[in-house]
Computed example of a mutant assay.
Amino acid sequence: MAADDLALVPNASAGISTVYAALDRRRSGEIVVTDHGYGAVTMGAERLARDRWDGGVRTARVPLDADEEQACEAVFAELSEATDLIVVDQITSATARRLPVERIGAEARRRGIPLLVDGAHAPGLLPAPLSRLTCDFWVGNLHKWGCAPRGTAALVARGPLRERLYPPIDSWGAEDPYPDRFDQQGTVDATCYLAAPTALGFIEHTWGWRRARRYMDHLAGYAAQVIGAAFTELTGADSSVDVGMPVPGMRLVRLPEGLGATRVEADALRDRVARELGVEAAFTSFGGIGYLRVSAHVYNTAADYEYFAETCVPVLAEWARAARGRHGAP
């Protein structure tokens, strides 16, 4: 990646909002997203298409267990002469899977459609997230797997459209070319940006990123196994999840019926677990089913997930029974 392709932004969503603000309607104002997209990003696409482009959003339905070919077919089926923009995740937040952004990028380029890749989870988790990837815009958070201070993300832009990108705050660098104009934004504290190389280097020098990724992937697999087995023992239901194009360091465990079936319910469950059980955990939903999204990093150990299986899973199973009872389900 060339240095002049990269601007630093507070987070992936800020980078995506920057792209949305810069683009004009060229065709019929349609934006193609997937049903795995991050909610705030999809809402931004809907607002752009509706309020500025007088268009709409088409959603590619990608089954959770879809392989690369099936995922491509689902996305390509929504493309047309009306498509002005494609927005797709490199690693999905809610469903912990990859999408074939390399093939989607090649098809987008062939059709002349700008592609925005949401790589929020990619830095650190993937060894080279921009390798072999053709896209107009890419965003990735450095404060997730990269362990940089919170509020550090990368916006990568290639091609002529990048000259339309401006930071959210107009400042004295506004007349500078991209990406220089992003370097000075009023009183924005750049400390987190300056600390990012040290954070990324710490992982490399202490463990090595390749070794760290192997550890994270092995531990996430163990976590899903031990937590899923605990749920199955209590409920009798299979908690395993078949995820197409899985990613290292992240797994899904299916929750018992009655828990987290919608985004609002999943968020409420996250807050309740933190408040009553003192555990920070990620709960998501997809297709009307609730999931525990397990993540692992170098600072985690097997004991973290064994504790969750022994202490939290019985409580969650009881909450699920109570929820089903309130709705008259067994």
Rank of each mutant, 00 (worst) to 15 (best):
132 R>L: 07
127 P>W: 10
68 E>F: 04
183 D>R: 11
257 E>M: 07
50 R>M: 14
147 C>E: 13
252 L>D: 04
65 D>L: 01
135 C>H: 04
26 R>F: 09
215 Y>Q: 13
34 T>A: 06
3 A>V: 09
309 A>E: 00
58 R>N: 07
37 G>P: 01
121 H>Q: 11
193 Y>V: 13
51 D>C: 06
10 P>C: 11
172 W>L: 11
17 S>Q: 15
164 R>E: 10
283 F>D: 01
132 R>F: 02
94 A>K: 08
68 E>H: 05
173 G>C: 01
153 A>Y: 06
17 S>H: 15
290 G>T: 08
95 T>C: 00
38 Y>E: 07
11 N>M: 13
232 T>C: 04
103 R>L: 13
296 A>P: 06
264 V>S: 15
292 L>W: 15
98 R>H: 00
143 H>V: 05
88 V>D: 03
101 V>S: 03
317 A>M: 02
191 T>L: 11
2 A>M: 00
108 A>C: 06
117 V>W: 03
84 D>V: 09
322 A>S: 14
125 L>V: 04
58 R>C: 04
224 A>R: 07
211 R>H: 14
13 S>E: 15
242 D>E: 13
38 Y>L: 06
30 E>F: 13
225 Q>G: 09
49 A>P: 00
26 R>D: 12
195 A>E: 15
222 Y>V: 08
289 I>N: 10
195 A>F: 14
304 D>S: 06
215 Y>I: 10
321 R>T: 03
125 L>P: 02
221 G>K: 10
57 V>T: 01
62 V>M: 07
139 V>G: 02
50 R>L: 14
188 V>I: 11
32 V>N: 04
183 D>Y: 05
195 A>H: 14
136 D>W: 05
75 V>S: 02
314 P>L: 12
149 P>E: 04
33 V>S: 07
89 D>C: 11
65 D>F: 00
35 D>S: 12
306 E>N: 00
178 Y>W: 05
312 C>Q: 09
325 G>F: 11
227 I>Q: 02
263 R>K: 10
178 Y>H: 03
294 V>R: 08
242 D>I: 11
145 W>N: 12
328 G>F: 12
80 S>K: 09
152 T>I: 06
20 Y>N: 04
147 C>M: 05
49 A>W: 05
277 L>R: 11
194 L>H: 15
80 S>R: 09
167 P>Y: 04
258 G>F: 08
123 P>H: 06
67 D>Y: 07
